[in-house]
Design a protein around this nucleic acid. Sequence first.
DNA 1: AGAAGGACCAGTGGTCCGTA
DNA 2: AGAAGGACCAGTGGTCCGTA
Lengths: 257, 257
Amino acid sequence: DTTNALDALSQEGLSEEPVQQEKEAVGSGGGAGGGGTWEVAGAERKKNNRRRKTPSRSGDEDEDDEAAEDEEGGVGGGERQREHPFIVTEPGEVARGKKNGLDYLFHLYEQCREFLIQVQNIAKERGEKCPTKVTNQVFRYAKKAGASYINKPKMRHYVHCYALHCLDEEESNTLRRAFKERGENVGAWRQACYKPLVSMAARQGWDIDAIFNSHPRLSIWYVPTKLRQLCHAERSNAVSASACSSSCATIAPPSTF
Amino acid sequence: DTTNALDALSQEGLSEEPVQQEKEAVGSGGGAGGGGTWEVAGAERKKNNRRRKTPSRSGDEDEDDEAAEDEEGGVGGGERQREHPFIVTEPGEVARGKKNGLDYLFHLYEQCREFLIQVQNIAKERGEKCPTKVTNQVFRYAKKAGASYINKPKMRHYVHCYALHCLDEEESNTLRRAFKERGENVGAWRQACYKPLVSMAARQGWDIDAIFNSHPRLSIWYVPTKLRQLCHAERSNAVSASACSSSCATIAPPSTF
DNA sequence: AGAAGGACCAGTGGTCCGTA
DNA sequence: AGAAGGACCAGTGGTCCGTA
């Protein structure tokens, strides 16, 4: 367990304020370099979330880390609880205020990949079975390594957004600029990321698994259920439409988007 | 749920008595042909095992199949409970008496593969995620299809024996003949199957996963924990022995076999 | 004793919903 | 209202151990 002093930093305007690499906490494993801009800037830290779970019992667990820091830079009362919400940012744009940008979001996926590589190296070393995907074990490892800002629901929630970023960065960037300009929120942008992926699947025999597996950074992520379902639904539409086009008047079935 | 009339056959000297294909119960899915000798002879059937679980409550479940047949060809008292135990047989040899031979054992692995292919086809059809291995889902499907003689503990128990059969049939056959001649029981033969696999791994960089994955019929099976551990232990021995050989007197560390 | 397999169990993939 | 994530849950991989 390597909780670290970095936790003492955090919070105000973090997206602007460069912070030392999260990686240092993890040590060995040889996570293949990674690097890039967000390796330096970016990450937020938090802890104490679990304290909500055992309210008002004080200090009979948690003996492994230092006393609770003053949270929120001295702003009284509430404890530091969550990551700042994401906002739609353009490529290269840093989020201001208590927000995180999309480059940071995608950086979290790269970090998970590095954690996976480390878990894989440890497993190989020990002759244990070796995960090929980002599993619960990897999330647990990330947490132990101090990356408490990484969690499964968040990462699963935005996988398809990261997929678009991997598979067609240009289209991904265009979408980000458009949604930022229109002042759309993250949820709307996230929804919009499905469509280009389904189109991509349409062009490649509807095999979304093959598409994920063809990309080395994406292949370590499970295909999200929703994306799989959308591809299936659109394929069915396409099939019935093409069957129809040879025999019926061409009326496109309603899209589920 | 397609429990079938085949269940009415079964039992006495079944290994000698050809029985209709189990496959017929399963129907669609297009299990890639399979075929071969055990497709016709072979399989035993049973049911009623679950009745042991709800003793002395009679017939308020199980409404989906016919009344209990006379078990054991009229021999009174006990119900038909389990598959006959395996004995060590030579290649091509049919087990006599209330026993099953090793060709039949390996045939069960081929059957599981066919069930997997059917499960995969159904999953693809529905746009659901598609298993690449023989999972619980496949065992459940096999049971529903009437192959109640297939179960997870049995299949997992003998995976490495099947692996040897796949990867080096000649060596597997030699081992079977030797153990039959010596009158060894199945457990002893099963234990002996580990060693040639570990040697094989030694020759191929100790990567037992890669070895399993290189063979199309074997790649659908999880590498057994014990085999993985043996490979790891032997690798450690080999490494320390080779380190030793350049600096120490050559004393081979004790093998864990 | 040797062996077959029901059934259990720890940890998984998946995501809901109480929270902020 | 929009969003982050603790925590739950059904079904998994793995195999023990009561059974025959």
